[in-house]
């Protein structure tokens, strides 16, 4: 038995042993970020199959729940990226002017704001979710989105404006 095959075996056993504990964490993470249980199931399955591919290719390293969340986040971002491509034909809703005051400067209605996240466009939703729901620093948001740091900061500014529009007006944004 060569060393590579042995490593793959160990990783495979780790993945199987971890599965009962890891599954609710991955599924819970995806449900709370995408708000759609059917989609969360699909993305959960894709996450574990990504893990299997990494095990077989010996690229996984030690299998941990934290690593599976990283994989799940990547699947989530990919989903929103594809959705953005499909939505591209939609007209943009009017954007707020740059010097408008954010409605949450006085008081943030968390429930209403999270609900507003459901209605912003996929690119904006991805950026806001990673930055605020997951609490990732901007540099990590950029890495997850596959964009440069400045481009991500600009995207976050546009995303916040879009969030403000749907929050205040109860409409949708196509960004």
């Amino acid at each position: 038995m060569d060393a590579e095959a042995k490593t793959a075996q160990v990783a495979a056993e780790q993945l199987l042993d971890l599965y009962p504990r890891a599954l609710p964490v991955v599924y819970g993470f995806l449900c709370s970020r995408c708000g759609d249980t059917a989609l969360a199931e699909d993305l959960t399955a894709e996450t574990f199959f990504d893990a299997v591919r990494a095990v077989k290719a010996n690229t996984s390293g030690e299998i941990t729940i934290a690593w599976l969340i990283v994989v799940a986040r990547r699947r989530l971002v990919d989903h929103w990226r594809h959705q953005a491509v499909e939505d591209r034909h939609l007209q943009r809703v009017g954007e707020a002017t740059p010097d408008s005051v954010d409605p949450w400067d006085d008081h943030l209605d968390v429930v209403r704001t999270r609900a507003a996240l459901d209605r912003v466009g996929p690119h904006h939703r991805a950026a806001l979710t990673l930055r605020y729901l997951d609490g990732l620093p901007v540099a990590e948001v950029a890495e997850n989105l596959g964009r440069g740091l400045h481009a991500t900061e600009a995207l976050l500014q546009r995303a916040r404006r879009a969030l403000r529009v749907v929050y205040v007006e109860g409409g949708t944004d196509a960004g």
């Binding site: 599924y27 449900c31 970020r33 943030l108 806001l128 605020y132």
Partner: peptide, 22 residues
């Protein structure tokens, strides 16, 4: 203020049929 949106990961059990099938 948007940092208040922070949502820690809460485990959630999926459908038993889905879990077994996967």
């Amino acid at each position: 203020p948007l940092d208040q949106l922070r949502l820690p990961i809460a485990p959630l059990a999926p459908r038993a049929l889905f879990a077994a099938d996967l």
